[in-house]
C-alpha cells in the first residue's frame, strides 16, 4: 500500500499511532486506487490487538473476521441494486443506538457512497453530526462531488492519488505485452489484473477493431455509418457496461487526435495506428475533435440515465458528422 499511496498511508499510520483517528473519513479516488483495501486495513488496525506500528497482524481472530464479514462491531454497507437505500442506513442507525458487542469501538464502511439516495444520505448525516464515542465512519467514493456537501464537510477528506500510469505500463510490459498494447490497457483501467485479463479477452480485441472501423467509416463513407452502428456496433456492445467501454475507447481515440494537434505525440494511446490518427486529424480540426470529446461524454451520461443505447449512438454519430 505504501508504494501506491505513500502520502495517504503515512498520514493514516501517524494518526493511528497518535491515537487520533477521526470520526469520519471520506476516501476519494479513481477505480483501482485501493480504496477498499485501505478502508479494510484501517478497520483492522482499529480492531486488531496485535498491531505493530499501525500494521494489523492479519492473523488474529479480529482481522480474520473482518475479512470474512463476521465481525459483530464492523459493518459494511454497499449498494443494494443501483443505490444505497434508506433501510440499509436505518439498520445502521439502529445498530448504533446499542452498545458494542465485543468492544467499545464500532466501524462502518459505506462503499460507493455517491450511490446513496437522498433519503439515505440525510439519515447518515444525522449520525455523522452527532458521532457517539469511538465510532469511525469510512465512506468510499469515486466522485466526491456527488456527495452531499453537508456530508463532505463532516468528514476528513482523503484523496487517493491516481495510479501512476507509467508504473502500470512498465509492469504490463514486464508481463509480455507490447508497448503499444500496454499503453491502451493502462488507459482503460487502473488495475493490473484487470488489464491483463482484458489483454487476453477476445471481445475486447474485437471492440478495438470496431472502434477503429467506425472512425474510418465516419471519414470515408458517412452515409453508411448508421447502418454500421446497427449491424456491427450494437450487436457487439450489447450490455450497458460494454457500451460504456466502447465509448471509452472512442474517447481515447479522439483524445489522441487532440494530442496530435497540440503536438504531444508521446501521449498518444493508439500509437500503432499513428497513420490513421494522422489521417483523421486532417478530417477533424482541433476544435472539432474537442467538441466531439464533449459529445462522447454527453453520450456516456445519457447511457447512465437509461437512454436507449442505439439512440445514443445514432445521435452521437450524427454529431460527429456535423
Amino acid at each position: 500500500m505504501k508504494s501506491i499511496q505513500p502520502v495517504v498511508s503515512k498520514m493514516l499510520v501517524s494518526s493511528i499511532n497518535k491515537e487520533r483517528i477521526s470520526h469520519a473519513y471520506l476516501l476519494h479516488g479513481q477505480r483501482g486506487t485501493g480504496k477498499k483495501y485501505l478502508a479494510i486495513l484501517l478497520a483492522k488496525s482499529i480492531f486488531c490487538k496485535h498491531q505493530e506500528r499501525a500494521e494489523p497482524c492479519n492473523t488474529c481472530r479480529d482481522c480474520q473476521r473482518i475479512d470474512s464479514g463476521n465481525h459483530p462491531d464492523f459493518h459494511w454497507i454497499e449498494p443494494d441494486g443501483a443505490s444505497i437505500k434508506k433501510e440499509q442506513i436505518l439498520h445502521l442507525q439502529k445498530e448504533f443506538t446499542y452498545t458494542g458487542m465485543e468492544s467499545n469501538r464500532k466501524v462502518y464502511i459505506v462503499s460507493d457512497a455517491e450511490k446513496m439516495t437522498t433519503n439515505a444520505s440525510n439519515r447518515l448525516l444525522k449520525f455523522l453530526e452527532e458521532p457517539s464515542m469511538d465510532t469511525t465512519a469510512i465512506l468510499l467514493t469515486e466522485n466526491s462531488q456527488a456527495i452531499l456537501p453537508t456530508i463532505q464537510s463532516r468528514c476528513q477528506l482523503i484523496s487517493l492519488r491516481p495510479l501512476n500510469n507509467k508504473q502500470l505500463i512498465e509492469k504490463l510490459e514486464q508481463e509480455g505485452l507490447t508497448e503499444a498494447n500496454a499503453k491502451i490497457f493502462a488507459a482503460v483501467t487502473n488495475d493490473l489484473n484487470e488489464a491483463l485479463e482484458k489483454s487476453k479477452d477476445e471481445w475486447f480485441a474485437n471492440a478495438r477493431k470496431i472502434v477503429v472501423q467506425l472512425v474510418e467509416m465516419l471519414q470515408t463513407n458517412p452515409n453508411e455509418v448508421l447502418l454500421f452502428i446497427h449491424t456491427q456496433w450494437m450487436p457487439h456492445f450489447k450490455e450497458r457496461p460494454q457500451a460504456q467501454q466502447g465509448l471509452d475507447l472512442l474517447l481515447l481515440w479522439f483524445k489522441d487526435m487532440v494530442y496530435y494537434h497540440i503536438d504531444q505525440k508521446e501521449q498518444m494511446v493508439f500509437s500503432y495506428h499513428y497513420d490513421k490518427i494522422e489521417k483523421a486529424a486532417m478530417h477533424w480540426s482541433k476544435k472539432h475533435a474537442t467538441d466531439n470529446l464533449s459529445h462522447i461524454m454527453d453520450a456516456k451520461r445519457k447511457l447512465e440515465q437509461n437512454v436507449h443505447p442505439q439512440l445514443v449512438m445514432e445521435q452521437l454519430t450524427l454529431h460527429f458528422q456535423r
Binding site: F96, T97, Y98, T99, G100, M101, N104, S132
Partner: peptide, 21 residues
C-alpha cells in the same frame, strides 16, 4: 457489565446489549 447485561438461570444464559446514551 459495561456494554452488556447478563441474566443467568440454571441452564440458560441470556445476554443483551445495552442502549447507548
Amino acid at each position: 457489565g459495561e456494554n452488556q447485561i447478563a441474566f443467568q438461570a440454571e441452564h440458560l444464559y441470556f445476554v443483551t446489549r445495552l442502549l447507548e446514551g
